[in-house]
Amino acid sequence: MKTGVPFREGLFQGSDEKGSLLGARCRQCGQIIFPRREACLNCLGNDLELIQLSRKGKLYSYTIVHMPSEHFEPPYAVGWIELPEGVKIFSQIRGWQERPLETGMDMALHFEKLWDEEEKEVVGYVFRPSTNGGA
């Protein structure tokens, strides 16, 4: 079995059941951002705390891509998911063949393989239509 490695360090932690996306909250103005950065773009404050973002959100917009890209065979879906914190996450969307996508629908966070590399499989966050209610 190949070792799973995140496509980028520092964006998320954990696995399917308990994992979460890692954002930051500005202690000065309260702005919540993803991904994290050193300074708040809203107030330029640099006192930010690490926070775990909600695992559920609503589908803000989406598309089903019918052209191949480097790592993904078409058709595959991508979209923005708006979390209760107000942050919009750009993500691949899975499970759309079973549950037709619709703006505003409830979505849930998962961690899955994105693509294979020689010795490892690259994992990342995806969202799937939620089966048991939204945020």
Partner: peptide, 29 residues
């Protein structure tokens, strides 16, 4: 297609499969 995608954010937009048609398709919705 691959090199145009370099103009998206390689930290987290590209690894999720972003393409420029996809961006404007999402803007259409």
């Amino acid at each position: 297609t691959r090199t145009f995608a370099m103009f998206s954010d390689s930290r987290y937009e590209y690894p999720a499969g972003i393409t420029f048609p996809a961006v404007f398709a999402m803007l259409t919705h």
